[in-house]
Design a protein around this nucleic acid. Sequence first.
DNA 1: ACCTGAACACCGTTCAAGT
DNA 2: ACCTGAACACCGTTCAAGT
Lengths: 255, 255
Amino acid sequence: MATRTRRPERREEPLSRQRIVEAAIGLLDTSGEGALTFRALAERLATGPGAIYWHVTGKDELLNAATDAVIATTMTTGTTMTTGTTMTTGTTTTVGTTGTTGTDDATPQEAIRTLALGVFDAIDAHPWIGTQLSRAPSQSPVLRVFEHLGRHVQTLGVPHPAQFTAASTLLNYILGVGGQNAANARVLQPGTSRTEFLSTTATAWAGLDPDEYPFTRNVADQLRDHDDRTEFLAGLDLILTGITTHQNPTDPTPP
Amino acid sequence: MATRTRRPERREEPLSRQRIVEAAIGLLDTSGEGALTFRALAERLATGPGAIYWHVTGKDELLNAATDAVIATTMTTGTTMTTGTTMTTGTTTTVGTTGTTGTDDATPQEAIRTLALGVFDAIDAHPWIGTQLSRAPSQSPVLRVFEHLGRHVQTLGVPHPAQFTAASTLLNYILGVGGQNAANARVLQPGTSRTEFLSTTATAWAGLDPDEYPFTRNVADQLRDHDDRTEFLAGLDLILTGITTHQNPTDPTPP
DNA sequence: ACCTGAACACCGTTCAAGT
DNA sequence: ACCTGAACACCGTTCAAGT
């Protein structure tokens, strides 16, 4: 017989806000946005649904806390964390000169790219975050991203009055992409690959009414070999160019 | 006694997809996103909840149809319609070259501003659209906006390979702002004015931890006399500058 | 073909009761 | 202080039954 240890593992650690949030993240990651239920969560925590309410005011707060937990680590680490797995964000390229995300970026532009890509990847790994960020008013998680963007904008040398606009434009772009990606993830069969999805949409677009959707039809073919991340960065660079050009405009206003 | 007309008004017009969508829009506008319920809708249409399902596959489709109805008129009219207005679902206009959108815009930039502002105002008038657009995969309503943006981008003279990026950057920015505005509207007391809201957030931001949120604190004062629309347009112009600068770059890449 | 409305399988949230 | 779990007031959706 094994000797009984003085401290046998308690059958359950006591409930805590942290454990609840972690369990919620797990549920959301594994089974999607629809799976986060107080009953499912309670079962996973081996307790009744009511117990959760002692630590958390309701579902909204829980979702916000879960989002904030992920975003907070993204913001400080620059890396996305996944539920069970340690995931190396792969494709760490493009970011800067050094591989180490979130650390020494040569230029503020690069720092912004790194940051934005961090959020992008976080949403990629946890699509529900995209939904949540678009739904959240400018509170903790969104504010966090705004703050960090703002600092880099400052470093970029943008004059004070324009800093707000620059930071929120970047933020809104990132949130827009995030929401869209989350929406796509929601619709997609869990199995579908990215290329598969793109190819399907490309075909759909190519079949659109030429009278109603001439432009969309026209760019349908470009969809096939477009990489989401690259595309995301291209848009970001467009904005960055806009920001830096506004600083020292070679020509005051384009015709 | 009044002579009975041959065609006395039927106690109820027959149910139809159109009437259902209109009623849904009314409900959403009047009482917010939470008020759209099949029971509430059925009551308003003087029928049972099951009846609706004969005309509409479910809630998602209904929300999408409602959003599309508003966006479609926004796109062709350039004006936002409010609840009372009779809307004919027809989408006929705008397709041609004459571009009756809003009014004659001198430059494609102006056309884009008009278009974007149309969506902005539509979300302002019907906050639930903002939520819906961020949640919707690139289907009808979102695609509509993308298409129209794309045409203007084309007119702007952006070379073919860059058109996709330009259009989707604009789109994502617009959707990001829309989602954020919808989120704010959701939280706000129906009575709260914009200035009141801004003032509250400004105070909140000014009270943030200086170590954690230096930038946000720093721009808090700017919030007080910022106009949402102006700010939205400023961000849009940043992107437009980026787009046109990329076309003929004076300096290839900013340092 | 179209409508009715009871019924089903869920929700989030509350709360008396327990430890 | 913290947990339990039945109960409440809702949902979206279905479906046998009606016209």
